[in-house]
Amino acid sequence: MALRRSILAALGVVSLVALTACGDGTLEAGKNLDPDKLTIYSAQHENLTQAWAEKFKADTGIDVQIRYGNDSSMGNQIVQEGAKSPADVFLTENSPAMTTVQDAGLLATVDPATEAQVGKAYAPSSKQWIGIAARSTVLVYNPSKITEAELPKSIMDLQDPKWSGKWGAAAGGADFQAIVSAIVATEGEAKAAAWLKGLKDGGKIYQNNIAVMKAVNAGQVPVGIMYHYYWYRDQALTKAGSKNTKLLYFRHQDPGAFVSLSGGAVLKASKHAANAQKFLAFVTSAEGQKMLATSDAKEYAVGNGVASDPALEPLPSLQAPDLDPSTLNGPKVIELMTKAGIL
């Protein structure tokens, strides 16, 4: 009894001390969104978004707060929040989620000046959002488990039963869903559905791209579908998750050569529209894009005249299929994946 009391008392004291010690962090973090700050819903990399936000504040004095999430969840969240969404700016990793918000009529038109900062190929025809970065689909493989001659020629080959149990993908993630949307756009719904069935029956589903890469690296599965930058980031750091792997680019306008566009947009209902447009202009400016190119994000820059990280395969050499990003259909992909039993 006495022992229990003293233990509980000690527990209480420790908690109180810890609370006071970290008080500022806690209370600030627990607070409501500040309506006076520019609010960004970002599905982009935390480090990169943070760096942009800090530089933007240093340049303009505009305070920024960021909510992190992932593409489709945040896209749908904004749609459900509707006109009362606290978000001013939405940054995605892939375009389908952006299209979802756009189709709900919640996006404002991007400033023409901002649009001019980015290559024509990296903006949708709708002009309601703009590319802020790009990433390429790759096949990661483990040369000790599979020879180069045995590798698939197209991403579509993987549905063949002979690949059963030999390929991995992060099917639950937005990245993968963007790739599926490219398959739908290039090959049509029926073929996409058949391919998804192949994934359901023979693919190994991982939690995310890093898990796919590490599984390939560890030899648990010979090949995997993911985006290029996970590999380059790991190579630049410890190589712990990728030292046994190589990348294959499908090229030849294969749906597996799909280059996904990360988007930025201003919400129509934003109460800080001018600042929001300023932020988007900053992100796509030469300065913002250089931050991207020199960061550890390893994504392709899309700003005019800004060179991407030289370590990467040059973007034009990837022979990506030519697609209007605003036509990549998120809900259709979800529907097909749900039908296939993956979701």
Binding site: S15, A18, L19, A21, C22, G23, G25, T26, L27, A29, G30
Partner: peptide, 10 residues
């Protein structure tokens, strides 16, 4: 530390 703090706070 901030994470520990916000966890304890919550």
């Amino acid at each position: 530390l901030v994470t520990v703090g916000s966890t304890i706070g919550l």
